[in-house]
Simulated assay, not measured.
Amino acid sequence: MKSAVEQLSTYKSVHLNPQNIKTHFVGVPMIIWSAFLMLGTLRFAWQDYQVSAAMILAVVVLGYYMALHMRLALGLVLFILPVLYTTELVVHTSHPFIIAISIFVIGWVIQFIGHKYEKAKPAFMDDLNQLLIGPFFLMAELYFILGLEKDLAAEITPIARDKRRALEAKRRAL
Rank of each mutant, 00 (worst) to 15 (best):
A140F: 11
G63A: 05
A67H: 04
I80A: 02
R172W: 06
Q111D: 02
A4W: 01
I156D: 09
L132F: 15
T41I: 07
A100S: 13
R43D: 01
Y85I: 02
I159E: 04
E155Q: 15
Q47W: 05
T87P: 02
L68W: 03
N129P: 00
F97S: 10
E118W: 09
K121F: 13
P18M: 04
F97Y: 05
R71M: 08
I98D: 12
L76I: 00
A53T: 01
A166E: 15
R171G: 07
M139L: 04
L152I: 01
G114N: 08
F36P: 07
S102G: 15
W33Y: 08
I99E: 13
L8Q: 02
K119C: 06
I101E: 04
M55V: 03
I110V: 15
L16Q: 03
T41S: 15
L138A: 12
L16S: 03
K121N: 13
L84Y: 10
M66E: 12
M70R: 04
M66C: 06
Q130P: 10
H69N: 05
L138Y: 07
L148P: 00
E155N: 13
T23N: 13
H95N: 11
Q19N: 13
M139K: 08
S94H: 12
D151A: 15
L42Q: 11
Q47I: 01
N17I: 01
I80N: 01
K121D: 15
S13W: 11
E88Q: 13
G75S: 12
L72G: 00
V59S: 02
I21R: 14
W108T: 04
V28Q: 07
K22W: 14
N129V: 10
A54T: 04
I110R: 07
H95P: 00
V5M: 03
K12P: 02
Y49F: 12
A166W: 03
R161C: 00
I106S: 10
P29I: 07
I145H: 14
L148G: 02
E118F: 11
V51P: 04
H92R: 11
A153D: 02
A45T: 12
K119V: 03
P135V: 08
I101K: 06
I106N: 08
G114H: 06
